[in-house]
Design a protein around this nucleic acid. Structure first.
Lengths: 220, 220
DNA sequence: ATTATAAACGAACATCCGTTCGGTGTCAAA
DNA sequence: TTTGACACCGAACGGATGTTCGTTTATAAT
């Protein structure tokens, strides 16, 4: 999954770590002279020399003529344990007998008091995502536990077989199920293969609130 | 959860977003002149003027005499959707009939071909964490699905009630269960409350491989 | 009408910074 | 022995950059 640039030697390695640590500590990249000072190198040209090699080896990228214009490449950042973060607003709880919260049209991160922070690499496209906390054990048949966090993408309809948060109008009930449209009726299939599906004869009773993208369980 | 600095007005807001976007795009902060250019301000002193206010309002921090020495504060970064990343090595699969992979003494991120990237805010202390991919449906009674990722912390023993990856020597079987030491015997309790526990009379048959810290399920 | 404050302008200065250039020493291959 | 690479040094140039200063305009309060 994470292809890494070629292995490199002593000094280059030190410079790379120096860049990473500097960014980690100060929030912006070092200058050539910062690196020289840190590593006890007395000439800036030496650092420039090594930076050019690190750039050739695809560990870093540089913006020419821009001060501190050093960037770790995606691969380099992964190799050093860095990445990109996505904040998903936690909009509330999902429980069997209560309506499912959905994002208002103009929701933004500012204003939400709690957020779930995930990396883009596991969440994919973060557009419009929101999170709900599961309350109660009524969704055990979806293999979802009390306290689990579900990451949702808003949707009013879903393709066959997709896992969705569903509000059943007549039963006044919320569930997480895979949805299958079968002619006139709807089959709601639990994620747990040992459990039986529910059939809803009137599709209008099935209100799709969003697709389930991910389930996160913090144990204990 | 995420306390935010005071609300601010038009131009300050624009400057803040400009800084965030610049960092997001280029990997390092803008100069005073970069900001001025971006916002169509003709004098650098204007930007300096606003930056000082943003600093007073605790949205940003500045390193004096350092070029591009602008940093979003922790609160400011959260308010704009940024954070800190942790890479967890994915060491292999966990399946019912196979031994559980455990980290070797000197494992490091470089060398692992696949990693799971999480944020510190959901994972807590990232020290020694590793990840396993669940294969098969044999752990349904732990509410864990085929394909789920479990995040583990190495441990050779666990406290009562903790969820652990367990290797049962005599059965040659791997499971995820809550472990209870009850006098001479061991109770292995499924996370699914509708299911019955297993009792092991000889505690030496129970080999703890690690504590389960988190379960992640990517749906579909 | 006066004062205070916020927001902006343009110019200027000293320092910071990337980059280049000419050299030096070491070591292994030819 | 010569050659070429690698790693390093010190100096210097020109442009980038943070910061300060004096001035101006608009708005609201006194």
């Amino acid at each position: 999954m994470n292809a890494q640039p070629a292995v490199l030697e002593d000094q280059q390695q030190r410079i790379l770590e120096c860049i990473r640590d500097f960014i980690q500590e100060r929030g912006y990249p070092p200058t050539v002279r910062d690196i020289a000072r840190e590593l006890g190198i007395s000439s800036t040209s030496v650092v420039d020399y090594h930076l050019k090699r690190l750039e050739q080896a695809r560990w870093i990228e540089r913006d020419p003529r821009s001060s501190r214009g050093i960037r770790l490449t995606a691969a380099g950042a992964r190799g050093l344990g860095l990445g990109e973060i996505v904040s998903v607003p936690l909009l509330g709880d999902i429980a069997a007998g209560e309506p499912i919260p959905v994002p208002s049209s103009d929701f933004s991160l500012l204003g939400v008091e709690e957020t779930i922070e995930l990396t883009r690499s596991i969440v994919g496209d973060p557009q419009d995502l929101y999170a709900l906390r599961v309350r109660g054990n009524s969704m055990i048949d979806a293999m979802v536990h009390d306290g689990d966090i579900v990451i949702m993408r808003p949707a009013e309809e879903v393709a066959n077989g997709e896992m969705a948060a569903v509000w059943l109008r007549d039963r006044e009930e919320a569930t997480l199920k895979r949805v299958y449209w079968e002619g006139g009726r709807v089959r709601l299939q639990p994620a747990n293969p040992t459990m039986e599906p529910i059939y809803i004869d009137d599709p209008r009773q099935v209100q799709i609130q969003g697709k389930v993208v991910m389930v996160i369980r913090r144990v204990r």
